[in-house]
């Protein structure tokens, strides 16, 4: 039994970081906005890491799953607004819908694209994101280019005050919960056969196959899990926090790039990496845009280059190697 618990020690630094963030946000005047942004980036990194970090495959269409999740929540709110009795249940249904829709899309994409390797997979997934956006716009699905604005519906369901509390505070708390869940699932995978299979296929897919590993199956497991979390993040950060959805905004490839940077900065395939990556990325972006508005990318790009060159395995990857075998090593993976 004790062994089972020690296996989950690495969650302690992750959850401690989230708790400190939360406490700062709640107790320090004017910090919540920054904390909310950091939580979003940590959650995004944590979710993407399950796929990018654990399989080594780069999905340039990752934001599509967040977009579809946003639509899932939007659909639940706009279509069920008439059923007043459901109340908060509508939000729950929204989450469920976001999860189902993003997972279904990932099964469809994964079943085809995950047969490709390396760069070919990456290129194919760019097409998925853009294709899905143009499908929605062109075929006028879910209001096409006009998107959906559901501030009024959300007010009707929850009442004006609760709806406002949801978008300014509770949605961010939910993002925190999602990030924490994603971290737990990551560690659970790492400790199970899934994690061993993913490590094997990330390092050498052909060798993994002749070792008896059904690589496609495990890639799809990681892909669905990661995409499902993306859907939940979209439903929370984008649909509940800002109650509208427009295709060009939720299928913006920029977010995928940010997610890749966060995972690589922190350390791909590590548990604590996305938290560190999310914090470094979020804090630098926030303060650079205040002190040097307009120049933030110009300054930020070299910083990223320097970090990647200094720590090719990411900040946490480097820490992990340094601490291997020490008492602290059990907590940092």
């Amino acid at each position: 039994m004790k062994k089972q618990i020690t296996k989950y020690y690495p969650l302690i630094p992750v959850y401690a970081a989230y708790l400190i963030l939360f406490l700062i946000g709640v107790n320090v005047e004017g910090m919540w906005q920054l904390v909310a942004m950091l939580l979003f980036y940590c959650a995004l990194g944590q979710a993407f890491n399950i796929f990018l970090g654990m399989t080594g495959y780069v999905d340039f269409g990752y934001v599509a799953f967040m977009g579809v999740g946003t639509y899932g929540m939007a659909l639940a709110i706009t279509r069920l607004v008439g059923f007043q009795g459901l109340g908060l249940g509508i939000i729950v249904i929204g989450f469920f819908l976001a999860l189902v829709m993003s997972s279904l899309l990932s099964v469809a994409v994964g079943a085809v694209a995950l047969r490709l390797r390396g760069a070919y997979f990456a290129i194919a997934t760019i097409g998925v994101n853009e294709g899905f956006r143009f499908l929605i716009e062109g075929a006028k699905i879910w209001n096409g280019t006009e998107g959906m604005i559901f501030t009024a519906e959300l007010n009707r369901i929850l009442g004006r005050e609760a709806a406002s509390a949801l978008s300014t505070f509770w949605a961010d708390v939910m993002v925190l919960v999602i990030a924490a869940l994603a971290a737990f699932v990551t560690l659970f995978y790492m400790r199970s056969k899934i994690g061993y299979a993913l490590t094997a296929l990330r390092e050498d897919e052909d060798a993994a196959k002749v070792m008896g590993i059904n690589v496609t199956k495990f890639k799809i497991i990681a892909f669905i899990t990661s995409s499902g979390f993306a859907g939940l993040i979209g439903a929370t950060s984008w649909a509940l926090k800002t109650p509208y959805v427009f295709p060009p905004e939720v299928f913006e490839i920029h977010y995928t790039i940010e997610a890749i940077i966060i995972v690589l900065l922190g350390g791909a395939g590590t548990l604590l990496g996305p938290v560190i990556g999310g914090l470094i990325y979020g804090i630098s972006k926030y303060y650079l845009s205040i002190f040097m508005p307009g120049f933030q990318l110009l300054i930020f790009a070299p910083i990223i280059i320097v970090i990647i060159i200094m720590f090719p395995e990411g900040v946490v990857g480097m820490l992990k190697n340094r601490l291997k075998g020490t008492a602290l090593g059990r907590f940092i993976i």
């Binding site: 061993y196 490590t199 094997a200 990330r202 390092e203 060798a207 993994a208 070792m211 590993i213 395939g269």
Partner: peptide, 12 residues
């Protein structure tokens, strides 16, 4: 599997 330890390799 390069990043995995010898023990993990064999366990796979």
């Amino acid at each position: 599997f390069g990043s995995a330890t010898v023990r993990e390799n064999i366990a796979v």
